[in-house]
Amino acid sequence: MKEPADIPARFQMAWNGHDMDAFGLLFHPDATFVNRFGTYWRGVEQIVAGHRRVHDSIYRDSTLENDAPDVDPISDDAAILHFWSRLNAGQAHPAGPHRIDTMILAVATRRAGEWRIQALENVTLVNPMTGETILRG
């Protein structure tokens, strides 16, 4: 990836293609990932293995729609990204088809001229009074 802003589109393409090899290429080998349930993975191998499990099962027919990111450069080789992501779960999910909106925070760094994710956290949008998931506007 040539720019940090490329990350959400590549993330979406890898997810929607259920291509965990391409998904793994989004991350540096020593990256970290916190999913929307608070599961913490360290290293691209754990990140890919965790996602492969759900893409082989409950998310095998899911899709994502990622918005363009808000990018905050913090140096020539580091940037913070925030972007909205809508998960469209399909029939394979135990709860059946439904949608979830999340906000993704990612720290991207450039190594050897290529931008990849160093750290990512995904937070589900919920009503703070009830804990019920909500969709944004």
Rank of each mutant, 00 (worst) to 15 (best):
A78N: 05
M13D: 09
A112R: 13
V54P: 01
D67T: 08
D6A: 14
G38C: 01
R36M: 02
R36C: 02
F37C: 06
V34F: 01
A31Y: 08
I80F: 08
H18P: 09
T124L: 04
G17E: 13
R42I: 03
D101A: 07
P94V: 13
P69Q: 08
V34A: 04
V107D: 01
V126S: 05
R111A: 14
A112N: 15
E45P: 02
K2R: 15
Y59N: 07
A68R: 04
E3C: 08
E114I: 15
N16M: 07
E114F: 09
T133M: 05
W84V: 12
G43M: 09
D56S: 13
S62F: 06
R52W: 07
S62C: 07
W15K: 14
L64G: 12
T32W: 09
L105A: 06
F27C: 02
A79R: 05
S57W: 04
R52D: 14
G24H: 03
A31Q: 05
D6T: 12
H93T: 10
A106W: 03
N35G: 01
R111H: 14
A9T: 14
G17Q: 11
W84P: 06
T102S: 03
G131M: 10
H82E: 11
H28W: 04
E65M: 00
D67F: 00
F27K: 03
G131C: 12
M129T: 08
T133C: 03
M13Y: 03
A119W: 00
R53I: 15
A106Q: 04
T133P: 09
E132K: 13
R99E: 07
P94A: 11
G113K: 05
A68T: 10
G137K: 15
E3I: 02
V48N: 05
A5L: 06
P69I: 10
R110C: 15
M1H: 12
V123I: 13
E132G: 02
N122D: 03
W115N: 08
D101L: 05
N88P: 11
A9S: 11
D72C: 14
N127P: 03
Q46C: 04
R60D: 09
E45T: 05
L105P: 05
I74C: 15
T109R: 07
V123C: 02
